[in-house]
Nucleic acid binder design. Structure first.
Lengths: 197, 197, 197, 197
DNA sequence: ATATAAGCGAGACGGTACGTCACGTCTTTAG
DNA sequence: CTAAAGACGTGACGTACCGTCTCGCTTATAT
């Protein structure tokens, strides 16, 4: 595919927009592909053609939302972008994720629901995981960086995020994540907990 | 109901056994209630009568598996049971969870799939969460204990566990969890970072 | 299946009735299974469960309509039923078919559309064909009775029937069929091959 | 349009040839336009530009096959062409149709499938019907010539032809048609209603 | 022991949502 | 600038599977 046809791009945008609308209105999961297609004013086949499956639709929507963070990680200014020390980047990245999660709770829920067990293969998830893995690896060679990266991403689990912001708002989420992240930072001079080899 | 009918008890066991078998054979999720009923040699209605729903079936199966840990937490000997210092209990509990997860990876996956967003309401999950919340609260008053407890339980996410033991075995899972947990322990001069049994 | 469940029978009737209604309203073909299910107030799955396919639905509806004729052929009074000479039975049967076709033109069309090439396997068609084959075989051993029986049934082709009654009414259809049928009767002393007006 | 471009003519031929091939290979109906285009080595749009629709493709293919008969009817020698008595022309025409049907059974099936209810509007069908209508009208003023003409064409129904030649070959079809046609001839001294063997 | 009522077993049933299919259209590009 | 190529739009179809409901039978209890 060299370039996307004009009508395809238009319908693609309409479908994504319709999905957003429905996610905003209905917090509950039952957002059927039919309802999305109907609201977008296109046939159901179009949705499946463009996104492959229900999962693919939410995946792509999440990817769209995650674009900004991804770009800032790669080319943005410190501390989120390259150049800052790993500890600062880690905190900045988790802050960004917390922001994203707090403002897209329902999308996360839908994405989690749709992607089910395959969420580890989601491109967005993989990118985030890779970023975390590298930072953690630099900060704490004593930890299983890959595993810890997954656990940190699990801290933004849709249901957990929803419950947390429902009882404390986005601030509580950010604070909790931040406090948790600091536990992973290497201990300073006054911290005696020195991990073994 | 005074007593459980003999055939009912027998069928209940057959259903649970059939579910285990299917979980062992098929790693993939699509284990339909029909297939379970067929393999158990009972009608589908029996499954729903006994367990209420697909989720209930997996919930009960997990609860059965979690019975030992629950009892040891409540009445067992330290460090898992009462009496040991919180840090030791936390590590012991997470060790136990890692063992359970390593030996029941597919069940966890099925449970996660079936319970979906409602897994926070699962009795077993709640009990574990409450236990962790108290321990974390005692150890680290500076953290959001409830949130951290959820994150720690997220470290036993089905898909994550599966991938971890697939690439490193149960030992890697246990080690990774242990290393991660130590980050949460408060720094203390007299507590070794590697608490022995 | 020993006996049909009460609710199944009720829904079955509702579906057939809804199909009739839609056939009455909309002469055109596009009667989707969804529209039938919606009008019947049941799910689409129910329609497919009971009738197997879109074709099966129309087949069964036609069979229901053809029940009277089938019974009269088997056990009814002459000349349609047994006992009358073959020539009289042939004419009576074709008359009955013409009546049925004239009053169920749209159903025939839908049935033809749905059954497509497989209409020769339709139970109702087969019964009618067998009846005709026997009568023709008795009347005209010189003809290929099976083939002629198919041709005679082809005289009630949905599109042909529709056009004929649209330009001449049911009477024209009946007369045309009758005149055609007389050509097949063996020439007798008092019954000329050229029937009088 | 003054003349057909060379490549257009070539593509047209390739499409028709591809359709024939597929009709020969696959007796079953599901010959999609995509498969035809693919086998012809052209884009699907080309097929639709040339033939308007799926139906149009089969219609044109049938028309091509029917060209010889049409010419012989109009300008050929008796008994098929003009000049012979109606009875002879009728028999000759039906013979020719039987030959055509026997050698193009699958094409007839595809044509019937594609044209569906609109086959009465097919140019080829109309020409044949008109020819038959006139002959029947001359031979048997007592019959509904238009209706009988349709019934006679129905004797070459695709499914019927297929079954007949499958169980008796083309000879059985020709004989059956011939015997049936003689029933329509007016009784004459030297031409009995009961034709001999 | 037998009749009767309560409740269980089996799976057919009801319905929703999904993904597929193939027609016909429309945009893009090559000649 | 015309035509080829095929990506695109569309909606009906049939399927899968969850949870419910009905019917027949088994078990416990009363006589």
């Amino acid at each position: 595919m060299t370039t996307e046809r004009a009508d395809a791009a238009r319908n693609r945008a309409m479908i994504l927009r319709a999905t957003e609308d429905l996610l905003t209105y209905r917090e509950a999961m039952p957002i059927s592909v039919d309802s999305i297609a109907a609201r977008a004013g296109v046939g159901k086949g179009t949705v499946f053609r463009r996104f492959g499956s229900r999962s693919g639709l939410f995946r792509e929507l999440l990817a769209e939302r995650a674009t900004r963070i991804g770009e800032q990680i790669s080319h943005g200014p410190p501390p989120l972008g390259p150049g800052a020390p790993p500890g600062d980047r880690l905190l900045a990245f988790l802050d960004a994720l917390a922001d994203l999660a707090a403002t897209n709770a329902t999308l996360l829920a839908a994405h989690a629901m749709a992607c089910a067990a395959g969420r580890h293969d989601d491109p967005t998830y993989r990118r985030w995981h890779e970023h975390l893995r590298q930072l953690v690896g630099q900060l704490r060679p004593d930890l299983d960086a890959g595993y810890v990266a997954h656990v940190l991403l699990g801290a933004f689990d849709a249901e957990l995020v929803r419950r947390t912001i429902a009882d404390g708002g986005g601030d509580r989420l950010r604070a909790a994540v931040r406090a948790l992240a600091r536990c992973l930072l290497p201990p300073g001079p006054e911290r005696s907990c020195r991990p073994g080899p």
